[in-house]
Amino acid sequence: MSMINYASREINCKLVYYGPGLGGKTTNLEYIYERVNPETRGKLISLATEQERTLFFDFLPVDLGEIRGFKTRFHLYTVPGQVYYNASRRLILKGVDGIVFVADSQPERMDANIASMHNLYENLAEYGYDPRTLPIVLQYNKRDLPNALPIAELREQINPDHLPEFEATAVEGEGVFDTLKAVSKLVLKSLG
């Protein structure tokens, strides 16, 4: 649910990083925060536990600057991945314009990936959002780990709909901006 403010000539879009716990959602935002031009981003807010697990969300506003007279801004959110935080996850999805699903490539996390993907579709349905029209991209994270599953196997299990997909090692920054670029462009296209 993007907002166009004709008075202040601003366009605001909400992007949400979704996925299983410890999959690398916060790491994506931290890398973006570190690497994007400081003049274009706001404060990175993390509502986390003392153990640095996301409790409610992380939030990072990134400004694209003025494009043909309109200031364009993306609000990046993560959700808490742990299963029992579903009420919080659902709240963050309110008004979402685009989703990055961050999957964990390790075989022992496959069930968590599948459960989280189901949970995403359920929560979208609660708001009446249609996952066939909402921009969603998939990021296969932790590709650097020696036990990372082959992409074909991950794809078969969690990407039967052939969503745009990217390989990443978020901790090194690899694939982070490719993913962000793809979802941002899809979101703006969906508004056109």
Partner: peptide, 19 residues
């Protein structure tokens, strides 16, 4: 609204430049 094809092309360029 502002989201005509020319606007979208300019926004895509900006996304490539910034990200």
């Amino acid at each position: 609204g502002p989201l005509d094809p020319a606007w979208l092309a300019a926004a895509a360029d900006e996304i490539d430049r910034l990200f």
